[in-house]
Design a binder for these strands. Structure first.
Lengths: 212, 212, 212, 212
DNA sequence: GATGAATGAGGATTCATTCAT
DNA sequence: TATGAATGAATCCTCATTCAT
């Protein structure tokens, strides 16, 4: 395989990496393709060989960096045979910690910023990440209930409550790390402790119920 | 007071309203001052009489819409003499519900999107909103502990856990309402139920401790 | 005469003064009527009561500040009965020294800068200043020859040679005073000495003639 | 070398030529980059590839057109071995005639008009043109004195007297050619005749001295 | 006479995109 | 495949001018 061919295969990846950095720093509109190109060590024209427009490139960035990690999480959860609590304390917590600290969290910021102008991106993201993630969470919780590990809880109806602290952590670090850094590991540990307590005592599931 | 004078006083407000809408729909970079002006029913040039640059206008938007509501919340909490639980179930929950559904939640999206390019905005927002909000939360929690209402909990160290679901709800509605609307009232009720259970049982405070 | 009326009469003058300063500092295009107005201590709108457009104001500036001084010079020369040499050593040299150092020299810069875009200004200036000045010079020189004071000289055909050093001095001071100030008095004294020598020896009149 | 490359090298020159014409006709502020571009036969955007801003372009114009001619003059004077009088009657007079009639005289007008707003341009011009020109003149005059060709004269202290007529001629032609054209050749011949007479008789050097 | 709010034409500048080489 | 010169649409911003008060 000649060198050119090899480059040809690596190019898109290199460009996406460069684009991620540029979009991260400047935002979609302010990022310049010229800068993406220099960062990737190529000429502006070559970007257009691989991505038809700036918008396409942006969408590719959004699509590329999260999916594999979500796939891996799902695969891991499906592969292993452990109690639901172990799933939560293990792969899920790790995923949340890792994602909240990873460079890829930028994608979340970009999505928040630009999503409303790119409905197809939102469709894609909801389909490929959000609903699959929620399905996974519901599955684990439901299994936990079936197992007798957990009681029914609002987390089943609102899995968003489970991930909200991760979302906040990401945004916090991107905006306010400078003012007041968040110790993400301890923060998420605390969150998971609360979650598990709620799942196991189960009383929280009935907001209107009397507290004994 | 001649009509002109009266207008002069109302203009900034009207322009800020129009700008909020435009920034909300298009984002900072893609919003056109021309459109802000038409939306406000004035000419392009007049915007510049009140706001020196597009950036100034943007910053004013960010500064204007949240502060009064936070002030009101703090005032309300300080004014009333109720138990900490009542504070949480009352003013705090109302605030969260209202903010998550309000048009002003757009400001959060704008801040996430553009914050990193405007450090002074982040400084301002952290100073005027974030740290005041966190102080308020810590105060209520600490009082609750002093009262004997609550046990010590991770919420004292990480008040972010308290507001994370509100943040997620806002973002969710702005991005995915179309795909799967979130029933914010029930969702936040469920959150608060979990929080209060954790505050009252107190066990969640020790993530590493054995659960009996 | 009520105060308003008095103001009415002084306004144009005050505005012209302010405009001269602004045009001097910024040039025609970059001078802002707003600044002219504030400098004159009035509102922008009022400028338009006295001067129909910015261009009219500019032309009025050009017309206003030089003419009276030229008139005075001519009157002085015509009034007094002195030898031509005394005229030159006296009123003419004084005029050149004074003008070269005066604030009004700015008008020359403005004329050089903007003249070509305002042909009527050039017509006016040529008619009212240039040709009258040249006529005056030629008169003095011719009288000197008639008197026997002077021999015929190129200054009669080219009175520009007489004033060129004044022009250079003005421009020099406006551009290069900071780098290397010119001692205008001594410089013009030297010039006049050369002129008078040439006028009196007269040989310079014939550039092609042998120098004895 | 592909056609594009060749263009790349010629472009700046072509743009500068076009800009000189536009600035000459309109002045700095009123010249439109769009017109510069059309005049150069290119698109507006391309001007910005070669010159960062309008101001940079302007400065480049000022810097470009005079220096080479001054360099050539200095080189010529230094190269040739002739008497000082021959220098003056030859290269210097030619330079003055040529410059006063050349299209490049526009640069002087632009400098007078815009100089005060661009101090770095004035620095540049003073350094590269004015002081080098004055040094050259002083050198020639001093040599002439050393040779016994000339007597000491005010031209040594004030070389400006030597060039003033050229400056006037340029400005005259740019402003008043239409009203009354100046025969520059004869005018400068006459000037040089006066200068040489003064240099050779030397009496003019002492303005205060008795005239015999 | 005097103010200053309001207008909108005009022009500098940027940058995604194209295409000849 | 790869380059980078060239284009021109898009938009911020300025400021002369108008006019209701």
């Amino acid at each position: 395989m000649p060198r050119n061919e090899r480059r040809k295969e690596q190019r898109p990846e290199e460009i996406l990496e460069a684009a991620l950095e540029e979009f991260a720093v400047k935002g979609y509109a302010a990022a310049r393709l010229d800068d993406v190109a220099s960062r990737a060590g190529i000429s502006k024209g070559l970007v257009y060989v691989y991505f038809k427009t700036k918008e396409e490139l942006f969408k590719a960035v959004i699509r590329t960096f999260i999916i594999p990690r979500v796939d891996a999480l799902i695969a891991e959860v499906e592969r292993t045979r452990r109690s639901s609590e172990e799933m939560i304390r293990g792969p899920l917590l790790s995923f949340m910690k890792e994602f909240a600290k990873s460079r890829r969290r930028i994608v979340v910021r970009l999505l928040v910023a630009e999503g409303p102008k790119h409905p197809d991106l939102l469709d894609f993201y909801h389909r490929e990440v959000i609903s699959r993630g929620m399905r996974l969470l519901r599955l684990i919780l439901a299994r936990g209930v079936t197992n007798g590990e957990f009681r029914p809880s609002p987390y089943q109806e609102f899995p968003q409550l489970f991930v909200a602290p991760m979302l906040l952590a990401m945004i916090w670090q991107m905006l306010f790390a400078r003012h007041q850094a968040l110790d993400i590991d301890r923060y998420l540990d605390a969150h998971i402790a609360i979650v598990l307590q709620a799942l196991k005592s189960g009383q929280a599931a009935k907001p209107d119920a009397e507290q004994p």
